[in-house]
Design a protein around this nucleic acid. Structure first.
Length: 184
DNA sequence: CAGTGGATGCTCT
DNA sequence: GAGCATCCACTGT
């Protein structure tokens, strides 16, 4: 299995993060779905350069970048910046393993499959907010080998042809099955 | 099941 | 003023 390098290619980092366990204040789980966003990528917040909002993306790797989505949700990213770049990996789904009861309280549902499925739900389950920006990410290595599938990113309108979404195809905690670009 | 639309706030044009 | 890396309730099969 590849070593996890958060300071190299963010697409490789997004792939290699599958299976790692993320914890915030003792609450979290196994990362089962990610997407990569790089500076040379029109869909990335960092594409138009550094702003107040996106500053954490240009900071040191291995830290959080958190942003508000559609005025409602907090989405959690891990900064994966090669030197001088702005890149991050969006966390799209966790398999909850730590602090299940606290997640259920925060989400108001019991079904573990839905606790942290989808980036907005994941943020809610972790009680993520802007205060997380720049904080060091607590990651623990995989306990078993997992398959990783690559496919199209979800919910974006630019650069929709890049297969920079990664997920464990055997996990029931993934938000949506991986779909690939039509071949022609 | 699938499809539609509202909530809501911040960034950029 | 538009658009957005979303989710949920609601509708109709």
């Amino acid at each position: 299995m590849s070593e996890l390098d958060l300071a190299g290619d963010p697409v490789a980092a997004a792939r290699d993060l599958i299976g790692w366990t993320l914890a915030i204040d003792g609450v979290g789980g196994v990362i089962v779905e990610t997407e990569a966003y790089r500076e040379d990528d029109p869909a990335s917040h960092s594409h138009r350069g550094r702003t107040v909002r996106t500053a954490p993306m240009f900071g040191p790797p291995g830290r959080f970048y958190v942003y508000r989505s559609y005025g409602i949700h907090w989405c959690v990213n891990i900064v994966c910046s090669p030197p001088g770049r702005g890149a991050a990996v969006l966390l799209r789904a966790l398999e909850p393993t730590l602090g299940l009861e606290r997640m259920r309280e925060r989400r108001g549902i019991a079904d573990s499959h839905r606790l942290a499925r989808g980036p907005g739900n994941l943020g809610a389950a972790l009680a993520a907010g802007p205060e997380l920006n720049g904080a060091v990410v607590d990651l623990r290595p995989p306990q078993r080998r997992r398959r990783v599938a690559a496919g199209l990113r979800i919910g974006i309108t630019k650069a929709i042809d890049r297969e920079w979404r990664f997920a464990d195809p055997d996990s029931p905690f993934v938000s949506r099955p991986i779909s690939s670009r039509p071949r022609g």
